[in-house]
């Protein structure tokens, strides 16, 4: 009896471990990640969620590129190694480049050289979606400015319209320039425009964007700008923050602590 109970508990413990292991996607047969269906809560309600990001440039280490690497690997972003054909979703700019209309006179020298993380701002009033002739780029119901690569004709109007230089065009076939495929995410093809998607594929699984997760300095906070109780809203209300080129009325969803 005593023996049986011990045996049962032991087996139950192992069983539970195996179950968790399978749930966590350790099953070697399925290389693809499991989907959390509850996170995919049907059609999103327009205007209920507005995803946003707060970047603390003070905790962002100069020279660190972990978020860039993580993002570009997760999304099969090609690396052509030259500026002309460059494709990038997230990158680092100097302070004066990211905020060209901010004052630079008599600022502390450290600030002027500081590296600032730049990416698509997922504007609430995006000029790119206004310019697109096919609605290949459009604002999703959760505020993300998305690309429909199936529809893009490659006219590059969105690139001319974007005041942040956040969009890249596939001047060449991207596949040879991808060092390692992430099989869960498609590549793009020659002739379409691409950009940051706020990791909508990870959000659908209840995960944080790849850049947020990979940041060793925890410099990026991600959350719902429409939820007054969210961490990002609390942080925004407590600190002084900046948006890039606010004078253009694009209402960026990416904020910065300087």
């Amino acid at each position: 009896m005593k023996q049986d109970r011990r045996e049962f508990l032991r087996k139950a413990g192992i069983g539970a471990l195996a179950g968790i292991g399978a749930l966590a996607g350790l099953n070697p047969l399925s290389a693809l990640e499991k989907t959390d269906m509850s996170a995919l809560s049907g059609k999103p309600v327009p205007g209920r969620t507005r995803w946003g990001m707060l970047i603390d440039t003070r905790s962002c280490t100069d020279g660190c590129r972990q978020c860039v690497t993580a993002c570009h690997r997760a999304h099969n972003v090609p690396d052509f190694g030259d500026r002309k054909n460059e494709v990038k979703w997230i990158w680092k700019s100097r302070y004066e480049q990211a905020f060209p209309t901010s004052g630079t006179q008599f600022q502390k020298p450290e600030l002027l050289g500081r590296e600032v993380l730049t990416l698509c701002n997922h504007c609430a009033e995006p000029p790119c979606t206004r310019a697109c002739p096919t609605q290949a780029t459009f604002k999703r119901r959760d505020g993300i400015v998305a690309m429909d690569y199936h529809r893009c004709i490659g006219c590059r109007f969105c690139m001319a319209a974007c005041p942040y230089g956040s969009r890249s065009f596939n001047w060449l076939d991207p596949r040879p320039a991808i060092s390692e495929y992430n099989r869960e995410f498609p590549t793009r093809e020659r002739g379409v425009v691409e950009k940051c998607n706020f990791c909508s594929e990870r959000l659908a699984r209840g995960l944080q964007p790849a850049c947020v997760e990979s940041c060793p300095g925890k410099a990026i906070t991600f959350g719902d700008l429409n939820d007054p109780g969210s961490t990002i809203r609390r942080m925004l209300s407590e600190q002084e923050t900046m948006q890039r080129k606010p004078e253009l009325g694009t209402l960026p969803s990416v904020f910065y602590i300087i």
Partner: peptide
């Protein structure tokens, strides 16, 4: 692809 032109990002 349009990479054969002088245009770029």
């Amino acid at each position: 692809g349009l990479g054969v032109t002088g245009m770029g990002r």
